[in-house]
Amino acid sequence: MDKQKYAIFFPIILFIVFDISALLINYWISDSLSKSALTINLAGRQRMLSQRISKSLLLVKLGPTDTEKQTARTELKTAIQLFDNTLKAFEEGGNTLDGDHKPVFISAIKPSQARQHLAQGRQLWTILQPSILLSLDPATSTATLLDQAIKNTLQHNLALLESMRQMTLVLEQEANRKIQLLRLIQSAALVLALLTFLYITGRLIKNKHIASKNNQALNAVFNTIETSIIIYNEAKEIIFSNQAANQLFQYPDGIPNRLSINNILTFHKSSPIGHTRRGISFPIKIECQKNIFKGIPSVICTIHDVTKQKEKEENLRKIAFHDPLTGLAKECA
């Protein structure tokens, strides 16, 4: 019995484990997609910021009005700070601003190829950033420094743009590879869960067939017994009767299941009574014992018709106390 329980409960536990694993992997995939999408979006924004820096720097020098030059200067400072913060976050992990200018944490970039392109971008940025900041600082800003900053930007901006583009491409490829791997693991977990479910279903069907055969065998044994057997549950509803009981209580098609035991039996300690389907009462001898029948707490009763025994006892009593010739009581004879 313990082996049978182990054979069914262990696969159920495995099914639950595989199912939970699939759900966790699904959550992991969603979380990974979200983080990868954020990193890729920010990497793409770095390309846009490098172009904005070039454009704003040119407008600082060539803007038609002082207002436009001042606006370009402000945009340039913002773009430089955002580009630099995001670059540091890619390198070491840290906070930056997302597309809605809300603080967001990103982890350091791990793929080696992406870090190579990131290092190239950092090298170029190390050349560009100081010259641009010097040209914007009111204390050091001169036309010569501005021209030098523009020259450096025109010389290195395309390379910076390309390094950011390559980094974004590698991140996209890495994200796709990771998602494919996670989905493969998820599919494997789902397949294992399905196979386990099919195994459990097969075991349950097999156990049901075995239980059905056992019940049939048990019923056959009960039906070969000449003693009447009736089994009822805690609600006093009959759940089994053998052929001897069906004949005794005159139910040719079998005593109906769920029929109340009180319909056919009257329990008296001294003289219990049985009642046939047609309402005929007769004396019985009954012995009942609580037990488990087909997994249900039940009461199993064996019943004997003692009508003939009562008649014999009555005849013996008459013989003992009455004169056989006159029929009168002996003390009166």
Rank of each mutant, 00 (worst) to 15 (best):
I303S: 07
Q46E: 12
Q289E: 15
L87P: 00
L128S: 08
M167L: 10
A108V: 02
S271I: 06
T307W: 04
Q166A: 12
G121I: 01
I284E: 01
I231A: 07
I132D: 07
F9I: 06
I53Y: 03
A72T: 02
N291C: 15
K206Q: 08
L194W: 00
E311A: 13
L204V: 13
N219T: 13
G295W: 11
K151G: 03
L195V: 13
S131I: 05
R165V: 12
I13T: 07
L87H: 00
L181T: 08
L134A: 15
Q173E: 07
D137K: 08
L49K: 10
V191R: 09
Q116F: 10
F90Q: 14
I205T: 13
A175T: 00
I292G: 03
Q155W: 11
G99N: 14
Q247E: 10
I12C: 03
I109F: 03
N207S: 12
N157V: 12
I303M: 09
K208F: 02
R115F: 04
L204H: 05
I286W: 06
A72R: 02
N41M: 07
N246F: 10
S30K: 15
I319G: 01
D305K: 04
A217E: 09
I230V: 15
L169F: 09
A22I: 02
Q113C: 03
T153V: 03
I261A: 06
H304W: 08
K308G: 01
E234H: 12
S54R: 11
R317C: 11
W28I: 11
I127T: 14
L57H: 00
S54N: 07
I230H: 14
V104L: 08
A220N: 05
S270L: 01
H268G: 00
S135W: 08
A139F: 12
P111W: 01
L134C: 13
I296Q: 14
L58F: 14
I238L: 14
T140D: 05
N257A: 11
L248P: 10
I273V: 15
A72Q: 02
P272I: 09
Q70V: 13
A114L: 08
S228A: 15
L76D: 05
L198V: 09
K213H: 08
V60P: 02
I225Q: 10
A108Q: 03
K35R: 15
F293T: 15
A22K: 04
D84G: 04
S107H: 12
L118N: 00
Y232D: 07
I319M: 06
W125V: 06
H101C: 13
K69Y: 04
Q148H: 09
L195S: 05
A79L: 00
F197N: 11
Q186E: 10
T302S: 15
N157M: 14
A108D: 04
N315G: 01
R47V: 07
V299G: 02
L128G: 10
T326M: 00
A139R: 14
T71F: 04
N262W: 07
F321E: 04
I286Q: 09
D137Q: 08
P11T: 03
F9A: 07
K3V: 14
V191A: 12
E226Q: 14
G279E: 05
Y6D: 15
P283T: 10
A235C: 11
I261T: 09
I264M: 08
S112Y: 01
